[in-house]
Each structure stands twice: as C-alpha cells, then as structure tokens.
C-alpha cells in the first residue's frame, strides 16, 4: 500500500488548493476541459467547426450548439487552448506524476485489498469498465455542468445550491452501485 496523508492533513491540503484557486483566479473545475480537448481534436478534422464572430461575446462561434453556447465561451477555448483552465488540468497530470515519483510503495502492492468485482476481474474486464465508467461520468458531468471538483468541492465551499443537489444525486447512486458491484467485504 502506498503511503497517504492522514485524513486531517488531506482535508487541509485540499482546502488550501480550493482556497488558493478561488483567491487568486477562480474556483477549480475539471470536466469542461474534456469538451475543450474533444473540440481541439475535432477541429483538426473540421475546419469550419470554429469561426470568428464579432457578434458573439467571446468573439468566436461554432456550428456545434454546445461549443456555441454562452456566447461561444467553449469555442474560444477550443480555438485558444493555451488558457488558464486547460493548462490547469494538464498541470494536474504533471503534479500527480511528481507526487507518485516520490511516493514509491514501501511494500509490494497489496493485491489482497483489490476489491473483487462481481462482473469479472480479468484485465480486459477492468479496462472495459474504466472506459464505460469514464464515458458515463463525463456525459453526466457535462449534463450537470460540473463534476466532483467544480460542483461538489468548489460549489459546496461557496454554499451553492447546485453543489448540494449534485452531491446528493452522485452519492445516492454511487454508494448502492459500488456496494452491488464490490460488496461490503
């Protein structure tokens, strides 16, 4: 088992991250950047996806209704992916790599604590679950307008009603699903 911080150190460190972000720039959010990454890839194949538009608030418009919404906010980010929110998420990849680089397991990985899924535990089954789970999570996060970072942590920190609604919906389904798939032992 890798060495993790105690819950109180963990909670304090997370609080510092979310506070620093809102004090210096804006609340943390992640899931929007999946859409921006998709848009960047999509625009490689479709030159007409993003257009400049002096009438829109962001100066950009899109043939896709979602990228075009809120004054072309997402269209602008797709056109200029070197922006705060996108780089923030890319930097998270580096940060986690850095942390794990100096956090080697002290003992061989503890395979006994790997939960057993009732849908099968072959490598292919686990990867398939990761793909399908990822697709459902991001579809849901975009419908909700945010994910665990944006709605739950940043949202509830600001006492936003949306954060409470989101957290209630997420845990109401996640807990029974996890218990069904992985059991209590």
């Amino acid at each position: 088992m890798r060495q993790y911080w105690s819950w109180i150190t963990s909670g304090t460190a997370l609080a510092i991250c979310f506070l620093l972000a809102v004090i210096l720039v804006k609340p943390i959010g992640v899931s929007t950047q999946f859409v921006i990454a998709d848009g960047v890839l999509w625009s490689l194949f479709d030159d007409s996806l993003i257009t400049t538009d002096t009438d829109s608030k962001s100066g950009y418009a899109s043939t896709n209704a979602y990228l075009d919404k809120s004054g072309g906010k997402y269209a602008a980010a797709v056109e200029n992916p070197i922006n705060y929110s996108f780089l923030f998420v890319l930097a998270m990849i580096f940060g986690a790599w850095l942390a794990s680089r100096f956090n080697r397991p002290t003992t061989p990985p503890d395979t006994a604590s790997q939960p057993v899924c009732r849908l099968g535990d072959q490598r292919s089954a686990r990867l398939l679950r990761a793909f399908i789970g990822g697709a459902i999570v991001l579809f849901g996060a975009r419908l909700a307008g945010g994910c665990t970072s944006g709605h739950m942590m940043s949202g509830m920190m600001q006492t936003s009603l949306s954060g409470y609604l989101f957290a209630a919906g997420a845990f109401a389904v996640a807990v029974p699903t996890a218990i069904f798939l992985y059991g209590r032992r």
Partner: peptide, 8 residues
C-alpha cells in the same frame, strides 16, 4: 447528471 456521474 450527478446521478449518472455517481454511476460511472
């Protein structure tokens, strides 16, 4: 959306 996210 929160419920879907919880499922995934």
């Amino acid at each position: 959306g929160g419920m879907l996210l919880g499922l995934g």
